[in-house]
Structure formats: C-alpha cells, structure tokens
Design a binder for these strands. Structure first.
Lengths: 184, 184, 184, 184
DNA sequence: AATGAATGAGTATTCATTCAT
DNA sequence: TATGAATGAATACTCATTCAT
C-alpha cells in the first residue's frame, strides 16, 4: 500500500535509457559476445520481457549503446580541443586525452575495442565508428592541417590501443614524448 | 571398398593441424563469437566428434589458433626487418608491412582485432598478444632505439587499425608520409 | 493542433467492426496459428491495447470473425438458392456457387478450411460450423429431399475442397458434370 | 549398474522413427499449431535437445510426419481397391473405407484436415497432399474411368470431411446410399 | 474510454560437451 | 582411435494478457 514499497516497477519512465546504460556496463564487463538480453535485464534489475518490449532486437540494443558511447567520448574530445587556444595547447589536450583514457577506467577503452570488432561484421555499427572518426578528425582540424590531423588521429589510436593491451602501459610522460616528437 | 572412395578419413595425421587452420578461417569470417565446434568441423569437413577428440575445449582451439596467427605475422615482420641493411631500409620495410596488411586480404587484420578483444577477457590469449608485442619490438630494436621502437610500434598499430575501419583507407603514399614524418 | 492531422483516432465508433474484418484478413493470410493480437492491430492500424479493450480474449476475436465469415457465405448460398424457381435452376445455382468459390479469391476457401480445423478443438467454433451446415442444408431442402440435400451438401464440400488443394482444379464444366451426374 | 535399469537412454536406435510417430500423436491431439518440439519430446519421453539433433527444424518434423500419415492412409486405400475383383466390389471397398474412417478413430481424419490447412501455407506439405491425391485417383482408375475416378474422389472427400464435422455423422448405410447413387 | 508500458510463460533453435560403441 | 548420438543449459525472440495512467 505504501507507495515507497518497491512493490511494482510498472511505472518507470527512463527505463529504456537505463537499459542502454546497463548494456554498456555488460559489454564492458563481458564483451559483445557475452551480452545477452538476460544479462542486461539482470544488471538493470528489470524483467526479461522488458528488453524486447523496448528494443526490436539485440542488435538494436548494441547499436544504441555504442552510439551513446561514441557520442560521449567524442564530446569530451571535442570539448577539450575546442578549449585549446593554440596549437601547443591542442597538443597538450591530445596528450591529456590519451593519458586519461589509459589511466582512467578501462571501461571506455574496452568499449571502444569491442565496438571495432563488432563493427567489422555489423554495418549499422560501422556507420557509428565512421561518424565518430569523422568527428575526431574535425576536432583535430581546428588546430592542425588535414594530413596532420589524420596521422595524429591514427597515432592516438595506436597509443591508446597498444598501451591498453600491454602489461606495462605507457606512462603519461611517454605519451607526451611520442606526441610531441610527431608534432615537432 | 575402393580406397579412392571418399569413404572415411579415419587415418588422417595432419587433421589437428587442419582444424587449427579451419578455426582461423572461421574466426576471420564470423568472429570469435561465431566460432563453434560445429562450424570449424564443417569448414574442415570433419565429423563433430573429432573436435573434442583433438582439443579439450573450444578455448584450447582458440588459443592454438591465435598462437599460430601471431607467430606467422610476427615471423614476416621479423624477416623483413632482419633483411633491412640500414635504418632507411628498415623504415621502408615498416611501410611495406603496413601497406601489405591494408591492401592484402582483411583476413590477418580481422584476426588481429579479434585476438585483441578475446585477449581482454582470456588470460591465456593475453600472453599470446604480449609475446607477439615483445617480438615486434625486438625486431624494431635492431634498427631503432627502445623508445623509438615502442612509439613506432604504436604508430604502426594505429595506422593499420585506423585505416582498416575507415571508408577511405590510407594509400601506401599516405602511410609512407606518416612513418617518415615520425622518423624524420 | 490542427484536427486534420492524423493525430488520434480516439473516437472511432466502427473500430470493433473493423477489428473483426482485420482478423479475417489475418486468418486468411497467416492462418489461425499466425493470428495474434499484434498482427490484427497492425492490419487495422490500431494500438495493441485496443484489442484487449474490445475483446476479452483472442478466442473471442476468432469466434466473432468466423461467425461473420460463415454468415456471409451462408447468406450468398441462401440467396442464390432462394432465387432459383425450380430444381434445374437450383442445380445451376449450386454449380455456380462451387465454381465461384474456386475461381474467386482463395480468401473464402482458406477461411473455411481454417474454421474446420479450429472447430475441431474449439467448441465455440463447432457451433458456428454446425449452424452453418444446418443453414446450407435447409437452403438445399427448398428444392431437394432431405437425403439428396445432405448428400449434395457433402458433394459440394468435396468438390470445393478437393479442387482447392489440387494443382489442376476442376473447370466449371467439370463441376457441372459432377453435380448433374449426381442429380440425374 | 544393472543394464535393465532405465538409467540412460543414450543408445536408442529407432528414436527418430518414434519421434515422427510422437509428432503424429501430438498433431492429432493438439493440432499443428499446438505441435511444439517440447510437446513431441514429452510424448516420446525424450530430452528436448534430441528433437533438434534429429530434425533441422520443426517444419522438417511436420513434413516427415505428414508424409508418413499420407503414405499409410494411401496404402490402405490402394490395398483395398486392388483386392476388389470388379466394379461392384470396388464400390463396396470405397464405402467401407469411408465408413471405417468415420467410425474408426478420429485420429486419421483429424490428421488429414490438419494436413490440408498446413499445406495451404507450406509448399513442402503441398507436394505431400498432391502425391497422395494422385495415388488415390490411380487406385480408383483401376476400376473406373478417369472422370468418374476424379468425381468419386471428390465425393469421398466431402463425405468424410462433412460427416466428421457434423454432430450427427452419416451412418454406413447413408454412405452406401450416397456412393451407389452416384455410381448408379 | 483508451492506450502505452510492462511482464512472465513459452517457442524454436544453437551448442559445448559427454558418452557408448 | 574415432565418431555418431545424445543431452541440458542457454539464447533471441514472441505474445496474450494485465495494469497504471
């Protein structure tokens, strides 16, 4: 009777949103291969049937989740580069972004790699990765010419990925060294 | 009765080997998530029971397959860098390796990314990736100092991966430009 | 705001009726087994919740739909036989009815067979088929004695069904031959 | 330890066969719509996984089951008509076949109607019904001309089906009357 | 009066692995 | 040594129906 009781969750606006977040959690923890309706529902504490009510298929869930992930990472990238007043500050922004990604939770990094693999076989996801790439490159082009932007983007990719897979990831100083050497 | 009939392959010494190759084919085509005993057996044209006869588990199959893949890619890397007489030739070797990866079949590239993701959750595979990385770096260190080798290795990673995911992959000329700019 | 916008159909007096027609369309297209609340709602372009608002259960929908089908087929049967002035004209009416069923859309025929099967397990539907049969027989009894009416009714059934399932359905001439031979 | 214990059913030759029979039982009891892997497995007292080991899909199960049904009914039809020495005996054989179908278990009759409906939407089943029809007609043509055979076949169809759906099915005497009147 | 949201039981199917031969 | 048969857990997805608004 008391409305505070966890009795029923029938009215739950925002559930779809929470499900997408739960999906990202699951993908990060168990990979795309281990991402199932059941697991997402469990993490979001929602009945299984709710998944297929809100999403037509698991692929739709993945697409929405990765889109959200890419958007949020790209937004940070955009913001930091927009805030940089000059080329030197932009270089520092890039260094900070890479270092944060590496030193921060593995969460974002793992999601990114999962997205890459999933995109290799899922066209819907491929357009997500491509939009994201385009956006990063445009952010870099605020400060660098097109060729430099493209090459720098690839270098960032390599630094992040490589270090992530290594037992001794690069230190922030090493990252700074690599980026500045390239831009020297 | 006639031995030419495709009757039975009961005596088949290289079968274990062929199964590992079949596994790589399947991983490249359908991803680790789509790699099953059944599919590998189908590709190798071998009865299902043969899989579990030769391998204790699917994980064992994956580990052996990825080990073979890493070995073969690393060997080529090694050979080309060993053959380079000087630093300039080494730079050209690196450029050629990246360009071949991109222009050649997606096969190797896809396998590599699949390995990265699988390694994120499978310790046995992580040691495969790490041995591979160590080996590449050592190959580079024949011609470059340790810091350069490490950074170059990351750049290579980024160039290959980034271009692979892009709709307009880099041309060999663009790759050459990026590598030489870094080594300048 | 503009009332012409397709905004809402909240006031829709004939909706229940339209739902029954939609149900018949779905049954004809996908069979009773493929007839679901969702599909009927989709065909009628009506929200899912509307189905259970207007009908207590799917069975109720089916019963109403089949009743409507049987009524409409029986009415035509009635009318044509009533219009026949004598036995010879009645025979021609029967021939025309069978031929029309066969040459017309498969729609009615499929619905009839679906009804037969559904009736085998659903008592509510069994009374629909029985009322229909009784009515056909009474229509025939305007012109034929009871035994002939019954036998003729069975012959009609067989001619329609048999031809419907055949790759080379009977021609109108063949139907006429069969009916007249029986009544000769 | 004792081999007589119902311990394991792992060795069970003929299981596939038993599954097809179980499928026919289920179709007769619950209709094609109610025929599921689970239900067939339950009736055959076999684990669920066994169904999909032996059959690629539920449609394959249905096709095999209906083929068996049609074969067995057609064989009886064949045999009885082959045994008839003359046209009069053939007429009696037809009468007996219809009467047996009606007075015998509903089993065969229900299966037949289910087959008709299923065939309306499943091409694989349509060829089953057509082969069956052809075979019946050929059996009749041993004693009757082609036109008579076809018409008689339709009459049989109608008598069986119509009576089956009626609350007061025809008596054997009534069936005899109908058939003989037609052949008179 | 009407409906979007929610839910739990059920469906076909896949599959790693075990086992008897 | 090798394998066809078998199995049970899991998966994506469907759907009749209930319910809060």
């Amino acid at each position: 009777m008391c409305p505070a009781q966890r009795r029923s969750r029938r009215h739950d606006p925002g559930r779809r949103d929470r499900l997408i977040d739960a999906a990202l959690t699951v993908i990060a923890q168990r990979g795309v291969a281990g991402t199932t309706h059941r697991e997402i529902a469990r993490v979001a504490d929602v009945p299984l049937g709710s998944m297929t009510y809100h999403f037509a298929s698991l692929d739709e869930v993945l697409a929405e989740a990765f889109t959200r992930h890419a958007d949020s990472v790209a937004r940070v990238f955009d913001e930091r580069l927009s805030a940089a007043p000059d080329r030197a500050a932009a270089a520092e922004a890039v260094i900070a972004l890479v270092a944060d990604d590496l030193l921060g939770s593995q969460h974002d990094l793992v999601l990114t790699v999962e997205l890459y693999v999933a995109a290799a076989r899922n066209p819907a996801l491929r357009s997500v990765t491509q939009a994201w790439m385009r956006r990063s490159r445009q952010a870099l082009e605020r400060h660098f010419d097109a060729t430099t932007a493209r090459e720098l983007d690839a270098l960032i990719e390599g630094l992040v990925l490589h270090s992530a897979l290594s037992t001794d990831p690069m230190t922030p100083e090493q990252i700074r060294h690599a980026v500045l050497r390239y831009l020297r």
